[in-house]
């Protein structure tokens, strides 16, 4: 009987398994991971949406044409469209009909279809070559060459605004992410300290029998890294579920949802278990090493 015991013997964990069933620590870690994953999701989705909007705005310009005294607005717009279409870096230039222009100003001016004579400026939309877009300066030069009076809006005000908002958002996300990570690290450091003091007899026996401090620290490192990986998995799953719900809710209508999540955005939660494990491992290792050299 003893023979089989020793032949089958596998080393028991130095830190008892019962210590690992720390539900509250698991819950706190999983919650932090969940929040971090939501941040990541929001950031990825927003970044992608911002990129889309900017691309769209950058690939278009709008020209407001003011007709000269001796020509109709429609004619002026047509001439402008013709002039702009020939500029290198422009793929297409279209004069908007009066109705289109009216519908664009309707939100501000109301229904103005009866006011035939109101000099509504005509708009020319210019589609730019994505790879080599014409600058607003070249567009202006082309108009001037034909003697057309027009104001060019290359949407740079909008793209700059969007870029600024996106940058602020990224900064906020990064800040919150760092905060969450630090909080997770601090909680693990706290748990390591408590775990180590609770198992002081193990630490002392290992130390006095000649275990290296790193060997002892690694016990705690592995234990908390494992716990954090599980918590990270749980948090990531929950965040992925929220992402999926947003995606399903958003696809139903033509309206842009608040956060336009697409399926691939949800992949952003994948690194969570690994990152959580790394953060926990580092926090546990540093805390354990310092504490071990203090108490031994």
């Amino acid at each position: 009987m003893t023979d089989t015991y020793s032949r089958r013997w596998r080393p028991a964990p130095f830190l008892p398994d019962t210590d690992n069933r720390d539900g509250s620590l698991m819950f706190v870690m999983a919650t932090l991971c969940f929040l971090a994953c939501l941040m990541a999701l929001a950031l990825v989705a927003t970044n992608r949406a911002v990129q889309g909007w900017s691309d769209q705005l950058n690939s278009q310009a709008t020209v407001i044409v003011r007709p000269r005294a001796n020509e109709t607005p429609d004619l002026a717009a047509a001439r402008a469209a013709e002039a702009l279409a020939g500029v290198p870096g422009v793929t297409e230039a279209r004069a908007l009909e009066r109705e289109k222009a009216e519908s664009l100003v309707e939100p501000w001016l109301g229904d103005i279809t009866d006011l035939e004579d109101l000099p509504i400026p005509r708009l020319v939309t210019v589609d730019l070559d994505d790879r080599n877009p014409a600058t607003s300066a070249t567009l202006a030069a082309a108009l001037k060459a034909r003697g057309i009076d027009g104001i060019i809006d290359d949407h740079s005000i909008w793209t700059r605004d969007i870029a600024r908002s996106a940058a602020v958002l990224r900064l906020v996300c990064a800040g919150v992410f760092i905060l969450i990570t630090t909080a997770a690290g601090a909680i693990i450091a706290f748990a390591t300290r408590a775990g180590l003091l609770a198992r002081r007899e193990v630490v002392e026996v290992l130390h006095l029998t000649g275990a290296e401090n790193i060997y002892i620290a690694r016990l705690f490192q592995v234990r908390f890294a494992r716990l954090a990986a599980w918590a990270g998995g749980g948090g990531a799953l929950a965040a992925a579920a929220i992402g999926a719900a947003l995606r399903l809710a958003g696809s139903g209508s033509d309206l842009t949802p608040t956060i336009p999540v697409i399926w691939s955005d949800i992949l952003a939660v994948l690194p969570c278990p690994l990152v959580a494990a790394l953060v926990a491992a580092m926090a546990a290792r540093l805390t354990a090493e310092r504490l071990i050299s203090e108490i031994t």
Partner: peptide
């Protein structure tokens, strides 16, 4: 003694070898 109570006698006796 300083034996580790959560591990068997065998585990306790093996500690100095295991840590190497």
């Amino acid at each position: 003694f300083r034996l580790l109570d959560h591990m068997t006698a065998f585990d306790n006796a093996a500690v100095p070898l295991r840590i190497t």
